[in-house]
Design a protein around this nucleic acid. Structure first.
Lengths: 224, 224
DNA sequence: ATCTTTCCCACCTAGGTGTGAACC
DNA sequence: ATGGTTCACACCTAGGTGGGAAAG
């Protein structure tokens, strides 16, 4: 169908929009992952994300396009990480294998997007970027999200309606989506060298190491 | 009175909170300028702010403490610049004098604080900082505020109530304050060398020039 | 000539990378 | 020994300073 074509072009749609069991109208809130091609490059090698005590940003950055919200209604946008399975992983002989018993899988804390609260029009006018969220392996006072190292996670985004001048608990969940293309294993140091290479290649903050690689290649070319 | 003491300690209170003509209850919204001592150092020399085509940040940074808002109500916080007088200024022989006829004094565009919209509790829990606002002498597409060079301005902060799911024009002004201690003349290059010295002394981004000054002083000390 | 504006620059702040040795 | 974690580090991105020459 035309809808299927569209989805394959722009990539993954959130799996479980859980409000409204009726037919899928354009008005129904939807969330679409951006940069799917990039995410899949990482997923094909089994993606890894560094966690540190102080918190580490994600790369690729999670970006989500929202549609179908009420432009004039107010929403919070939240991010959390669901345990993708119930095992602990380890990297042996170049591949990830199940190893040991997992930590008790508490659902991760929620990260509230810093633009929250804001109008539907704001959330829809451009992809929602989670470039500031930080992943940690320790419980911190600040806004970092704690994950268990060597466990696999899947990012989820939630949109909740907020009303001014009401009690704090009055928040209605409008839409949730889980992004399997953005699954990753939390690590304190990269295990798969190919993952490291992808990170260096695409993350501008790792430019120093990209340059080092290029110098190395030039040296080898000079020798030939 | 105790109230007067408090105000002289923390500095300037907004001059014209324009809602509620009744007696001043603690619940009445109020805005107080922060870092008044620093602002007055600049004001004593006649403060200057650089304006550039691309936009320049203010220094000192305008910080305002808010109180008396409804913690659960939603507000926008706006900043604009009122013409402090109707003349054009020029700097001759080390002092500012009236010179020439002024540009037509259109009120400046309004800058919306990037945290907007947000709850009263958010605006009150810490001073509201306008560290990102940029002053320009050109009309730009982005969020810069255009001012006329060599004209004097006084920053004003406005708090307006916003409701979700209502028409856009439905915004009720809750409180306005004008900060005479933060008056300045817009310039494209600093005129008063003493102002330059203060900017270098207190703005961390000008550290390079502070270091240069210290080296100079050490050289002079060595010669003696 | 004089006054004002523009542009490029060196030098900072602030903070995000993976590395590799050290630590546990 | 082994595997996982931590830390200081060099090297970047990103962008905010005033200086000073040049241009209007």
């Amino acid at each position: 169908s035309e809808n299927d074509q569209y989805q394959s072009l722009i990539g993954l749609t959130g799996d479980n929009c859980d409000e409204g069991a009726d037919i899928c109208m354009p008005e129904k809130p939807e969330l679409h992952l951006q940069d799917v091609e990039l995410w899949r490059k990482f997923k094909n090698l089994t993606n890894e994300m560094i966690v540190t005590k102080a918190g580490r940003r994600m790369f690729p950055i999670l970006k989500v396009h929202a549609r179908g919200l009420d432009p004039k209604a107010m929403y919070n946008v939240m991010l959390d990480f669901a345990a993708a399975d119930s095992t602990r992983w380890k990297f042996v002989n170049g591949e990830w294998v199940v190893g040991g018993k997992p930590e008790p899988a508490a659902p991760s804390c929620q990260y509230t997007h810093p633009d929250s609260p804001h109008f539907g029009s704001h959330w829809m006018k451009q992809p929602i970027q989670f470039c500031k969220v930080k992943l940690s392996n320790k419980l911190n006072s600040n806004g970092q999200i704690m994950l268990n190292s060597l466990h696999k996670y899947e990012p989820r985004v939630h949109i909740v309606r907020v009303e001014s001048n009401t009690s704090d608990g009055d928040q209605e969940k409008v839409c949730s989506a889980s992004f399997s293309d953005a699954q990753f294993i939390a690590v304190t140091a990269y295990q798969n060298e190919e993952i490291t290479n992808l990170k260096i290649r695409y993350n501008p903050f790792a430019k120093a190491f990209l340059d080092a690689k290029e110098r190395k290649e030039c040296q080898q070319a000079d020798l030939q």
